[in-house]
Write a protein that binds this DNA or RNA. Structure first.
Lengths: 130, 130
DNA sequence: ACAAATGATACTAATATGGTATCATTATTA
DNA sequence: TAATAATGATACCATATTAGTATCATTTGT
């Protein structure tokens, strides 16, 4: 069971690279450095752009750069972008499916674990990774 | 992003039910109580049997029951059975893929988070859920 | 005008998850 | 001893997610 997908993985690496290198970085350059398939990397960067984590510049001499400080880019946010919101189990949270409804002890437990995990993940920023 | 799959979910519910009801429990009964498709539930219970968490009895009057105490059935173990070993990311752990190899800070961070999560999950047993 | 970059989007492939179907085996019991 | 009610084993199918590709449009510097 993987908690982090390739999407997230590549995104984190790209962000780390960019936080160490001022100015615009092209997809081509990232691909060289990180060994990731180019069109896939493009898609990832485009998404980060849409999410306003990166900014992009078209045309010759263009590329991507961080839009916000590495200190303010949280790993858990990147995970959310590529993997959806973190939740232990949809099922336990949908009362209409779970037969125990509100009383479900498991649900409470899960909830508290979830909080713990999120708490830890929230402390990790790109800045803390480089 | 779900941390717990339906497999695990159903298994946990079945185990909880069985820990509250002495003696053999048939698949049919569980299906009635928990509203899970029968053949799917069978497959799940058969797996728990193979993993020596349940014991089974064939023939008329047969069924399943816990083989070990609910206090010794750990949620994280059930997750492992149905979802494989918990790891944040295979990629970071395979040095030959990660370009930073041994030095990767991310990997260490991930590792420590992983430990934290596992630590919390390890405290949850079936007994603690009922 | 051309080349080098991203934007947008649709498509394909691989893998994981969720679920079904079927036949074999075992044990109870009438 | 035969019917029945249970699990064992296994192969199969459906759906969703993840990973990756392909293509054409747009922008911009030279």
């Amino acid at each position: 069971m993987k908690l982090i997908t390739r999407n997230t993985d590549y995104a984190l690496r790209a962000l780390c690279y960019m936080s160490k290198h001022e100015g615009l970085v092209t997809v081509g350059r990232l691909v060289q450095k990180l060994g990731v398939p180019q069109p896939f990397m493009r898609k990832i960067l485009q998404k980060l752009n849409k999410e306003r984590i990166l900014e992009s510049h078209k045309g010759q001499g263009g590329g991507f750069k961080l839009k916000i400080s590495p200190k303010k880019i949280y790993m858990v946010e990147i995970m959310r972008v590529f993997q959806g919101p973190l939740g232990l189990n949809g099922c336990f949270l949908k009362k209409d499916i779970c037969p125990n409804k509100g009383k479900c002890v498991l649900r409470k437990k899960i909830r508290s674990i979830e909080e713990g995990v999120l708490g830890q993940l929230r402390e990790i920023t790109i800045a803390s990774l480089i």
